[in-house]
């Protein structure tokens, strides 16, 4: 009979896979059939829910055998019997619909495979750690880095760049056209700074940095000591940048 009907049949069912195993098929044949189905899926198989119908709901011997085989060999996490599946479907129909979830935009981050480019789709990026040569960090709006920025790396932000540490790389704030942006660092000695469309070269290597910030004044990039200038002192009311 196993020659006529296949020993394993797989069918998609909502967000699950319904796997039917012929009740009289030999175990080896079923296992090789299952391997053909699940092996190409690799890690994707681990997130799929499998409804396993081994055809013997009464004692469940074959069901448990294949279930443990699937769990061990392919790392499947969720395997249910048809009875359990029907019960869960029933339960989900009777319970209230789930509350609307809040979409957290800050999680939408993407790193390239060599880890050298970091691009975030959230507005403000806050990072901790050392930024090394060859890395490029892009933020839609503000970029805050707690750590040092080594020479040879590139920071690009739509808004301000604040570095709680030393800045020795290239920093481009207010890209492409926000002249109000500032670049601030506790140890300000960048290779180059850009704000909106303006570019300024940094001081030669080796000079000692101070707690300074760069901003645009009369169409020129100016670097001032932050505490002496205190640029936001005169603002009567806090605003969102």
């Amino acid at each position: 009979m196993s020659g006529e009907t296949p020993s394993v049949r797989v069918k998609g069912l909502g967000n699950s896979l319904w796997v039917t195993i012929a009740p009289d098929a030999p175990i080896e044949a079923v296992q090789s059939e299952l391997e053909k189905t699940f092996e190409p899926l690799k890690h994707m198989a681990q997130v799929v829910r499998v409804v396993l119908n081994a055809g013997d709901d009464k004692n469940g011997g074959r069901y448990h055998q294949f279930r443990s085989y699937l769990e061990k060999t392919f790392g499947l996490k969720e395997i249910v019997s048809p009875g359990e599946y029907a019960a869960s479907q029933e339960a989900s129909r009777t319970t209230a619909p789930p509350a609307p979830t809040v979409v957290v935009r800050h999680k939408e981050t993407e790193t390239r495979k060599n880890n050298s480019t970091f691009r975030s789709t959230s507005d403000t990026v806050l990072m901790a750690g050392r930024i090394r040569s060859g890395q490029r960090i892009t933020a839609k709006k503000h970029l805050i880095i707690m750590g040092d920025v080594n020479p040879g790396c590139e920071l690009v932000a739509g808004g301000d760049i604040l570095i709680i540490g030393s800045l020795q790389g290239i920093a481009a704030a207010g890209q492409p056209n926000n002249p109000d942006a500032i670049i601030l660092s506790l140890d300000f000695r960048p290779t180059q700074v850009k704000i909106a469309g303006l570019v300024a070269a940094g001081l030669p290597q080796g000079s000692q940095g101070r707690f300074e910030f760069a901003h645009i004044e009369n169409d020129v990039i100016v670097v001032d000591e932050y505490q002496a200038a205190n640029p936001f002192r005169r603002m009567p009311w806090p605003i969102i940048r």
Binding site: N115, S116, R132, S133
Partner: peptide, 12 residues
């Protein structure tokens, strides 16, 4: 500078 880049790649 180059060592810094290599350390980043090795870290990745």
């Amino acid at each position: 500078r180059d060592a810094d880049r290599v350390i980043g790649l090795l870290y990745a």
